[in-house]
Design a protein around this nucleic acid. Structure first.
Lengths: 155, 155
DNA sequence: GTTCCTGCAAATCCTTTGCAAGTTC
DNA sequence: GAACTTGCAAAGGATTTGCAGGAAC
């Protein structure tokens, strides 16, 4: 079984741990590896389940704690959705926002320099110093829209 | 003590209750009245405290339940902030989004038809049918920025 | 009278924390 | 060995729910 990990991110994590007098552990390595492989918008539960396929002994608490470290190290970013939190890779990724399908749960990313610029303008008008933002658009994705209007689905 | 309430919203609420075979109650009236008077972005706790000044016997559970009704009736809208939920008046108000000061907690509203239009365009590109969105911008408001750079605050 | 409300306490859900045992440096 | 980690169980915080008594229709 192939066990490659994004070397660069693993190095970043190790450097982060070293710099903060923290220690490596099999658990942390397994969680980071699983997180990087999946490359999706994972909930804590998603990640826990994926990790436990390999290491059933790793507990939910460690997932929470490791995700905090990954965020601090700049490797993961929290996506605070409606009810739940999800996490996505953040290393060397450009800023983006999300479309979320209310039917199938799919998440699509988008970037819009124009929207960012408009935000900056409005903020400048009221003297507000932007530190971050959350911009989530809810609705139905193409395939869910198509599905719900299929002849056999009508009625 | 003046006890006027926005008549129109009160009527809307009564109509909503009647249509759904629900009942009026002193508690619901007091909560709606308090909610309308404050005209801010209230947390459940804020509202509970304001309501209890007049009616100390009203419990938190009733606040939660009444807020749900107000939302269903189109009178209140939930603002899902980072950790907590806040509620604002929604009746005959145009859509807007928010700036939130991380220092003092102040919330500023803004509207941008241009941003809305850009959202629609991007959504159309990927065949996404928008139903709603959440757009919150975090940072520091003018007075908090000023305060933190005042000479006496330096160091 | 029947149906709906209310407040309390208990239950949930998600996340964090205390602690004793195990690991890493 | 000292300092950090882990998993469990317990604690927290926010919101919901079951229920018995009370109010509205």
């Amino acid at each position: 079984m192939k066990n490659s990990v994004r070397r660069e991110e693993k190095d970043v994590f190790d450097a982060y741990l070293a710099k903060n007098h923290l220690k490596r552990s099999d658990q942390r390595e397994a969680i980071l590896d699983t997180f990087l492989r999946s490359d999706r918008h994972l909930s804590v539960d998603d990640l826990l389940q994926l990790v436990q396929r390999r290491r059933p002994d790793i507990g939910r608490t460690t997932i929470y704690r490791t995700l905090k470290l990954l965020q601090a190290a700049g490797l993961a970013q929290e996506l605070a959705l409606d009810g739940e939190s999800r996490f996505e890779r953040d290393y060397k990724r450009e800023h983006h926002d999300h479309f979320i399908c209310k039917s199938c749960g799919a998440i699509f990313e988008f970037t819009s320099p124009e929207i960012e610029r408009l935000q900056d303008e409005i903020a400048a008008d009221i003297g507000f110093a932007i530190e971050g933002h959350r911009h989530q658009i809810y609705g139905f994705c193409r395939s869910c829209t198509a599905r719900s209007s299929r002849p056999e689905a009508r009625r």
